[in-house]
Design a protein around this nucleic acid. Sequence first.
DNA 1: CATTTTAGTTTCATATAGTGGAACCGCATT
DNA 2: AATGCGGTTCCACTATATGAAACTAAAATG
Lengths: 262, 262
Amino acid sequence: MQSKADGTVGKALAVLELVAGFERPVRFSELQGSSDYPKATLYRLLQTLTKQRMLSYDPDSGTYTLGVRLVCLAHAAWKTSSLAPIARPYMDKLSEKTGETVHLAQLDHAQVIYVDKRNASQPLPMYSEAGKVGPAYCTGVGKAMMAYLPEDQLTDVLVQQSWHRFTDGTLTNEAALRAELVAIRERGHAYDREEHEPGIICVAVPIRNDSGRVLGALSITSSTLRSSLDKLDSFVPLIRDTTNQIARETQNWRFPETKSIA
Amino acid sequence: MQSKADGTVGKALAVLELVAGFERPVRFSELQGSSDYPKATLYRLLQTLTKQRMLSYDPDSGTYTLGVRLVCLAHAAWKTSSLAPIARPYMDKLSEKTGETVHLAQLDHAQVIYVDKRNASQPLPMYSEAGKVGPAYCTGVGKAMMAYLPEDQLTDVLVQQSWHRFTDGTLTNEAALRAELVAIRERGHAYDREEHEPGIICVAVPIRNDSGRVLGALSITSSTLRSSLDKLDSFVPLIRDTTNQIARETQNWRFPETKSIA
DNA sequence: CATTTTAGTTTCATATAGTGGAACCGCATT
DNA sequence: AATGCGGTTCCACTATATGAAACTAAAATG
């Protein structure tokens, strides 16, 4: 059931993911049912993870859930590995100025991961959104990032796309997407023309560092009811300005201190 | 440097924690410096974690950071393992009614983990707070939860406290705290009388399920400038009401569906 | 009440995966 | 050309994980 996972660590993480997949407290037997691991192996893996507090076990109901240590680690991950803490004030400003929903995403493996979100109208349930994943080939942020990927990485990402047709506008093959990527590079930003969800449109601009590497992307999302691509287009200079500022700031960030070695 | 970590998984997690500790991109040699693991072992561990996307490696700078997979997993963790998603609407209401800062915390190991936070006045940087840890013995939520722990778990938690004197009010030994816990059980809620930070006070109420097990705690925090313990006291019925509602809702939550087995 | 089933836990000989000292590589510095 | 340093690879050795099967407790069944 789970993908190739060499090493004990890989297996343990697969189990973690398995538990995560249930999105609720889960029994041993349920896990066994959706795993190829033999009973004893799965059991020990669960024990190990529990002892390590990556899982927590509720003796009352005999169920496992993801442990708090994970939340702590993620806290640290979010603070250091993602653009989110740097981008935060800029996103605030952007959402304030535009009055639209702002997303910050990063590319991981072949998926888009939303690491932060801002909604001008109401203070959003943010944590519940951060960490969410989406397809790369049919989202504004995904395409914006892919457009500036080096060829070897791009091919890697492309083969992993599902090309599922979410809407009539969805680009469902590599050729179509590649053409789109060229257009994106020409104009410097990407659109989502209701490709993922009907009625939902967005403009996205990649965040790239000095050496051109893609760090993430910012997008402004709206609906066809409230807005239009033309209207969103007017935000582009503002977004690009913001991505540039964020990119600039990441340069300094890399080594805030060069720990003095005694 | 790292604590006892049996098993490969334990070691890998220790390395993860090590990277997390730096709170910034970190070089191999730096990690080697703060780890007992021999070079090759550490190296392989890092490779494994990187391949598993728990770490990400930046070839430009030759540094490791925590990977986004952690953020994804945490997304799931937050949704299932913690009280946060259930408590969310109640916290909103509570912060709205009181106009004060509301914290939701859980007890893990011997530490308090803040899993959500609400601030009535301004929309808070929430993610940056969730996952934060604090000492149990000198926080309102910590004491509220400890007060209702079964004796064996309590002793376990108590021996792990640091008893550092943060302020004049800090309870710096087990005897003093145990006396306080009795008082908390009597009145049903805990205070933080500037025990952790000067000028910061709070009332906290534990969240307990039907069988009496402590699930977490809610607190309302304020400062001596804006408020007083007496003033906070008036919120107690409201908080207790909220904790009861949250506790009730967790009962249903445990098994939303019993996955039909074909 | 005895019996079967189900769910979870332990055992143990075996195989695998992890270990780490040492050698190696590439690059910057001298 | 030589030295030093950060990082990577090798490989004999062994600690660790493995998983079939046996076991236990508790629930379901007759």
